[in-house]
Design a protein around this nucleic acid. Structure first.
Lengths: 228, 228
DNA sequence: GCAAGGTAGATAGTAATACTATCAAAATAG
DNA sequence: CTATTTTGATAGTATTACTATCTACCTTGC
């Protein structure tokens, strides 16, 4: 039995819903591959159109600009991750175990089907690591935020914060702990790959050592009492 | 008595040493103000030239491009911070106290002279928070890294890792702990300002609560034993 | 089978960006 | 005071990031 979990996206993320047409779906899927291959900065709608055998103008009918496409992809990823988290921690009682599952999800270690809905999750994960912060590190964060473009990220952070509070009721930094956990994992993964001397996970790149680091970091902060 | 601590920069960061001429110094100082005011993306060498009353071509004689200027500014900041760290922890014996000083430095809380060498440190600190990651989140990280452009950052991380190991000999993640500390502080500072629901430091923006969070995060991870 | 409405393809064009080149004027160094 | 370097001024190119328009096509509704 196959489940098709359709992720309904915020309408302000696009001009025309890309999941509503074949061309739109190809823009999203090929966009992921292009961003992954040549990076966000070097990507242009012209290059994407060429690779797809369509025209620049057609892509502009779906997305206002390249930045909005990035925000869309990243938002999709956070919604996917949030769903995965709910699904995989569904009938677990122990919040410790839930957070353990979360760590594996964030590192994308045990991924059964690398293609979901024809979306290349490894490529998308890479984009999130390398480019996601460019989605909010702009002058128009405030306006984008007002349009709810970052809601999926906030929802995920909220859900993680909830689990943190299950494990440690009264912990006063649940949201900050959640957002910093996500960002730290991605940063360290990027550094491990590109600037390994900023980490302790030198060659050979040791995903499991990175996991051990963030696990220790997370659980030690949740175990230690707060003294003021 | 005045000290002029001249920071000698890696020669690959520029085409002509900006500290070697009046025009060069103005490019750096006005560049900081421009990046701070309108952001890295919207800044151009033309706008910088206009604001300085000089010409685009003159700036290109100092810096290959806008990205290199950013890398220069960020590298300058890390060298400044590294010096400050050495200076302010000079005759301290207690590594705990050293790390405490570091936290204050990273947050730029107690800054006696906001202008060092005519460089606006508050503006530069802001740039580091909002734009520094764009210095390495590019396709040419590896090449830039080979040219030692990130050495100041690595040196700082190495020094912090050293203090961490004083406090906690044998801690296996000293470098990752150092780099994640820096990144976490900057991320949380950015979120507090722009996406406060990702933090627990809502309005009114509470710098001291952020400090309390990272302090707890840092020292709990260094206090907790590692179980494998 | 056909009209109406919408989607995509194709071409063109504009303003801004990210540079490069050149030459003369001005500053400075020996 | 001359030689060299630095800056100013102007110009030009390729690319980017769009916007506009028109035609072909493809539904679907009747």
């Amino acid at each position: 039995m196959e489940y098709s979990v359709h992720v309904r996206m915020n309408e302000r993320l696009f001009l025309r819903d890309p999941e509503g047409s074949e061309l739109g779906r190809r823009i999203v899927r090929q966009g992921i591959l292009l961003f992954d291959e040549i990076g966000f900065e070097d990507a242009t709608f012209r290059k994407l159109a060429d690779r797809m055998g369509t025209k620049e103008a057609s892509i502009y009918r779906y997305f206002e600009n390249k930045h909005r496409l990035l925000v869309y992809l990243v938002a999709w990823y956070w919604q996917w991750l949030d769903f995965q988290l709910v699904f995989r921690t569904n009938n677990l009682a122990d919040p410790h175990e839930k957070l353990e599952r979360l760590l594996h999800l964030l590192l994308l270690t045990d991924l059964e089907n690398p293609l979901t809905d024809d979306i290349d999750l490894r490529a998308l994960h890479n984009i999130v690591i390398c480019e996601a912060s460019k989605a909010y590190l702009t002058r128009h964060v405030t306006e984008d935020n007002r349009q709810q473009l970052f809601k999926p990220y906030k929802d995920l952070v909220g859900r993680i914060a909830g689990i943190i509070l299950e494990l440690r009721p009264g912990y006063p930094y649940a949201r900050s702990r959640a957002s910093s956990l996500i960002e730290t994992i991605h940063h360290q993964a990027f550094f491990m790959e590109n600037l390994p001397s900023l980490t302790d996970f030198g060659q050979p790149k040791d995903q499991s050592k990175l996991l051990a680091f963030v696990r220790h970091l997370l659980f030690s902060s949740l175990a230690m009492p707060i003294l003021d």
